[in-house]
Design a protein around this nucleic acid. Sequence first.
DNA 1: AACACCGTTTCAGAGTGTGAAATGCATGGA
DNA 2: TCCATGCATTTCACACTCTGAAACGGTGTT
Lengths: 289, 289
Amino acid sequence: MGKDHLEKPKGVHRVASYQPVNSVLRSLDVLKVLNRYSVVSVNQIHQLTNLPKPTIVRLLETLIAAGYAVKDKNGRGYRVTSQVSELSCGFHGAPMAVEAGRPWSQKLTRELKWPAAIAVPDGNAVVVYDTTCGDSPMSPYHANIHKRLGLISMPLGRAYLAFCSPEEQRLTMQLLNSSTHPDSDLMNAPGLIEQLLSTSKTAQFSERVGGEANHVSSGVAVPIYDETRNKVLATIGITYYTTAVRRKEIVEIYVPRLQAAAAGIRETIIRLTSETGAAQANADHPVVL
Amino acid sequence: MGKDHLEKPKGVHRVASYQPVNSVLRSLDVLKVLNRYSVVSVNQIHQLTNLPKPTIVRLLETLIAAGYAVKDKNGRGYRVTSQVSELSCGFHGAPMAVEAGRPWSQKLTRELKWPAAIAVPDGNAVVVYDTTCGDSPMSPYHANIHKRLGLISMPLGRAYLAFCSPEEQRLTMQLLNSSTHPDSDLMNAPGLIEQLLSTSKTAQFSERVGGEANHVSSGVAVPIYDETRNKVLATIGITYYTTAVRRKEIVEIYVPRLQAAAAGIRETIIRLTSETGAAQANADHPVVL
DNA sequence: AACACCGTTTCAGAGTGTGAAATGCATGGA
DNA sequence: TCCATGCATTTCACACTCTGAAACGGTGTT
């Protein structure tokens, strides 16, 4: 397979360098089938996957050894155990927000040109899990992915702190007072904090006007709210050069666009969540016998 | 942490004839770690699993090829996708009822000696997914696991039909009228059906008195009700020789025991469900950075 | 610039997964 | 009762696939 001339990697993403591990792919197929039907026989799996039966039995025993499946009584079939939740319980918070939000932040950047970012609350800060600063032709910053942003000074942080539940806000404030974080230096001005939060709450978005400290950039952000859990799942915002945009434009165009994106993301998340939990209650039962 | 996958043989069950497939066990470990943390680096996985880094990258690429993971932007880490729900969405209905109910039906058989059974509604019948007839010293029948039982004549079936929601009952009755099923021959006596259902509903359990047809056995059953979804998840019942038990004993001892078991199973199911869905919202965030 | 760290790639070799064929093990019909 | 049938399971020799030490290359730090 050795090429003697240089081959350019495809686009930005490199081609996978490894061949996928065969047995792993097969085991995932088997586990998927196990999940589709309540109780499955080796033969059913064989028909659904075209895998040789010995292979199926071997993989099933492997899944059993790992605790994700059990053999039904008197060898009539196999089924999954409650432990399978370990394999999907992590699809919450950051991963869900990123997967649901990516198309929306890209759309924002296409339309407004400025970079957008999505951040997820994590203790005493928010963590940026996605930015479109690579897609934006004129990004004020280069790359702040995985950066922890302060909950007071940064719009993405404040959009969380101002709009989360009162109890959550109280606990987070305690955390802010008892640990070091990006905004630790602002903690001695309690009046300032309350003012910023209430201003955000009234205006329905949070804003940082640049030029104050040593920032040439400004930003606005709004929360992504899950109404079924009463929880701020993430925040989404855009950043721009302070001198390049008039405030009127921000309030009348940028903020509504952000709120529309947040609403769209919220709907996607609700859909993904309900699919994960319930769903297929009907599709699941094509009368297994 | 867990590295040696040496499994001890399990008690009465036969020892697994195959050696578990190594790469599969490892991939499941990796997927589990991916789920425990929002975004993970290869190094973090390495520290948590003790797997060699090339192996981790290979398995991650395999998971990516299968669609269960994606590489976070600019190579800073990996995370799961919404597709992981495929690997656990099946733990509902039958598997959950069986896993939660098994200890209770065994307890019933230990105490009352008669065999107990758990059945799950499936279209126009209920399917027996677990029985303790192997544990019972005096079982009237031999093995009816995976058998489809009628919703009218059998206590396990009637406990579902009588106690499910009115809308579900209406749809199921339509299904019973338009398909063949174990009780097809009873469908021409509509008065009988309504009477059986209302009697069950009043008495809070369903009962079949043997000797009527050609049965020497009788049975009682109760529904396992999920209050959060307003849904009968399964039914649990016991079977006995008609002539061996006085009716007083059934009403005063058997039925209360069954109802206690149903309540216990319901609680276990609620616990399992909430663990699967939410949970770990806090434990999940040991500040990943 | 030099260093340190980390993700990724390479590659040769051995251990491991593979699946056709054979063997059990039920159930059901004659 | 005794085969016939269908399915789950086991065996086993071989090919091949997975393995992981070592090397590489990129990025951020001193």
